[in-house]
């Protein structure tokens, strides 16, 4: 029974992230066009006048393709650009160190590992949902300072990629993929579930491919192998160890600037026009051949006609 409810709870969460399944568009209650913008008066008359109009600390819902993205605006970074974090009303899926901030409607979990930038225009187009209090914002800024300094100290990793919290986190990153990737630069890594969500000590036992080719003990050894290959060539890409903790992925010339996907096993971690180089965390792997084989890294080009 509990499992059935857990499954149902997760479905409820998933539904909240998809547009087009609410009564406005999908049921007999659909809004007739003639009723739009009618008897609603919208002058501001209530609330804290200090805060009204302030974008910082607002929770917003951004519609992107067929997805709904709940997010929190933390600060203005440069002209016309804001630092935004993925947020969610479904706090039951919070990791131990995820900040939980209080709004007028209730708590929101905020994902420090899932930030992106939005323009002023995009924020104006996103629906205002709620506002968190000033001290919660202070706590978030404090947490963000700490997370940037030493992300490894934050307990936001899981033992298995199959539990509900993992599924939640993976979906949350899927939702923001477009926004995170358009700001990719040399400082920003791809988010790879096997490397960034799973606890490092669980990696070997969770990789089906690794388990299929070798016994677990060997898989663990492979992760820590010294003097291993720090460059790996395949038909579609080259992997190179940049330093102890980062790997670069360079698409082959025939893939470059074409629309495609980068997949790690069953997870698509990048979708869009392939740039010259992408980076991701090595997750403790020292041998790139082992990394490639264990995670089954692939570039899949989009069908003809979809290419840019």
């Amino acid at each position: 029974m509990k499992t059935q409810y857990d499954k149902e709870l997760f479905e409820i969460y998933l539904e909240s992230t998809r547009s087009g399944n609410d009564p406005v568009t999908s049921r007999e209650d659909a809004l007739p066009d003639s009723l739009s913008v009618c008897s609603i008066s919208i002058e501001s008359d209530a609330g804290d006048p200090v805060c009204i109009g302030n974008l910082i600390g607002t929770i917003r819902e951004l519609a992107w393709e067929d997805s709904l993205i709940c997010c929190l605006v933390l600060e203005k970074t440069e002209e016309e650009s804001y630092l935004v974090f993925k947020a969610s009303q479904f706090t039951r899926y919070a990791m131990p160190d995820d900040p939980k901030l209080t709004g007028w409607c209730g708590d929101y979990l905020v994902e420090l590992d899932n930030s992106f930038r939005l323009t002023q225009r995009e924020i104006d187009e996103a629906v205002y949902l709620d506002r968190v209090d000033a001290f919660s914002l202070m706590q978030l800024q404090h947490a963000w300072d700490g997370f940037r300094e030493s992300p490894e100290c934050w307990d936001i990793r899981v033992d298995s990629l199959d539990d509900w919290r993992s599924k939640f986190r993976i979906r949350e990153h899927e939702l923001t993929r477009h926004f995170r990737h358009r700001n990719l630069d040399g400082n920003r890594d791809l988010w790879v579930p096997q490397l960034d969500l799973l606890k490092p000590q669980r990696l070997a036992s969770q990789l089906p491919l690794a388990a299929a080719i070798m016994p677990l003990s060997e898989a663990f050894e492979l992760l820590n192998q010294k003097g291993a290959r720090d460059i790996y060539y395949s038909l579609t890409h080259t992997l190179k160890m940049e330093n102890g903790a980062r790997v670069s992925l360079r698409p082959a010339p025939e893939c470059l600037h074409k629309k495609g996907r980068v997949c790690f096993g069953t997870f698509c971690v990048f979708e869009g026009v392939l740039p010259a180089v992408l980076y991701f965390s090595s997750g403790g792997f020292r041998d790139l051949e082992a990394l490639q084989k264990s995670l089954d890294i692939r570039i899949e080009l989009a069908e003809e006609g979809e290419a840019h």
């Binding site: 501001s44 008359d45 209530a46 609330g47 006048p49 805060c51 007028w104 104006d124 205002y128 506002r131």
Partner: peptide, 8 residues
Amino acid sequence: QMGDVGHN
């Protein structure tokens, strides 16, 4: 929150 909602 009506002030904020109205403003937005």
